[in-house]
C-alpha cells in the first residue's frame, strides 16, 4: 500500500492501473446510462424525473468522499510530514468542486418540477453550497500564492478547518426539519429503495468514481512532474 503515500511508487502503480480503470469507467458508464434510461422503471409519482437521481446522488456522495480524502491526506501531510498529501490536495480539489457543482445543478433541475422552485434555503442545500464555496476557495488559494511551501501548508490547514462542514452536510437532514429527504441508503438498516432502482444507482456511483479516479490519476501525475521540474 506504499503507493498511496510515495510519489514514485504511485507513478509506477498509476502506469499499471490507468488503462484498466479507463476501460472499466467507459464500460460502467455506458452500462449505467443504459440502465438508468431504459432498464429502470419510472416512479409512480415522479415519472421520468426520478432518473435525475442517478446523476445527483453519486455526485453528492463523491463530492463528500473527495473532501474526506483531502482531509485525511492533510492530516497525514501535516502530522506525519508526508508531502504526497499536498500533491493530492492540489490535484483533487477541482474534481470535488465539479462533483459538487453537478450535484447542485442536477438537484435544482429536479427541484423545479417536484418542489416548484429551483432553490430553497434548506439546511442540506445551503451546506452543500457552502461546501462548493470551500472548494472554490481551495482552488483560488492554490492559484494565488507565490511560495509553494507556504501555499501547500496553508491549503492543508484550510482543508482541516473547513472539514467542520462535512458532518454538517451529512447530518443536516437528521438534525433539522428539512425539505430534502433523509438518507435512503444507509449501512445500518435495510435500504428503502427497490432493487430495480438501486442497481442503476450503484452502477452509476462506481462509474462516477472510476471517471473521477482517472482524472485524479492524470492530475496527480502532472502535479508530480511539475514539482520534479520545479515549475509549480
Amino acid at each position: 500500500m506504499m503507493f498511496l503515500i510515495n510519489p514514485n511508487k504511485f507513478n509506477k502503480a498509476a502506469d499499471f492501473l490507468i488503462k484498466p480503470i479507463l476501460v472499466l469507467s467507459i464500460i460502467l458508464f455506458s452500462l449505467g446510462l443504459l440502465f438508468s434510461f431504459y432498464l429502470s422503471p419510472e416512479d409512480y409519482q415522479q415519472g421520468s424525473t426520478v432518473r435525475i437521481m442517478y446523476v445527483h446522488v453519486p455526485s453528492a456522495w463523491l463530492a463528500l468522499l473527495t473532501y474526506a480524502i483531502m482531509t485525511l491526506y492533510s492530516i497525514a501531510a501535516l502530522a506525519f510530514r508526508i508531502p504526497f498529501g499536498f500533491i493530492i490536495n492540489t490535484a483533487v480539489a477541482p474534481i470535488g468542486g465539479i462533483f459538487t457543482l453537478i450535484c447542485i445543478i442536477s438537484g435544482s433541475f429536479w427541484g423545479k418540477p417536484m418542489w416548484g422552485t429551483w432553490w430553497v434555503w434548506d439546511a442540506r442545500l445551503t451546506s452543500v453550497a457552502i461546501l462548493f464555496i470551500i472548494y472554490l476557495v481551495i482552488i483560488f488559494m492554490n492559484l494565488s500564492f507565490e511560495n509553494r511551501v507556504v501555499r501547500e501548508k496553508v491549503v492543508a490547514i484550510f482543508v482541516l478547518v473547513g472539514s467542520i462542514n462535512l458532518p454538517i452536510v451529512k447530518f443536516s437532514v437528521d438534525w433539522w426539519n428539512t425539505l430534502h429527504q433523509p438518507a435512503t441508503i444507509s449501512k445500518l438498516s435495510k435500504p428503502n429503495i427497490d432493487p430495480s432502482m438501486m442497481i442503476p444507482l450503484i452502477i452509476m456511483t462506481f462509474a462516477f468514481a472510476m471517471i473521477g479516479l482517472v482524472i485524479a490519476i492524470l492530475r496527480i501525475k502532472t502535479e508530480i512532474i511539475s514539482r520534479k521540474s520545479n515549475l509549480g
Binding site: V137, M141, S144, E146, V150, R151
Partner: peptide, 26 residues
Amino acid sequence: SISSSMNLMNQRNFLLGSVIVMIFSI
C-alpha cells in the same frame, strides 16, 4: 486572526481572506 495569518504571503489576492472569514462566520 486565522484568515489574515493564512494570507500573509498572499500578495495577489487579498480578498480571499474576507471570503474565508465570511464562510466560517455563517
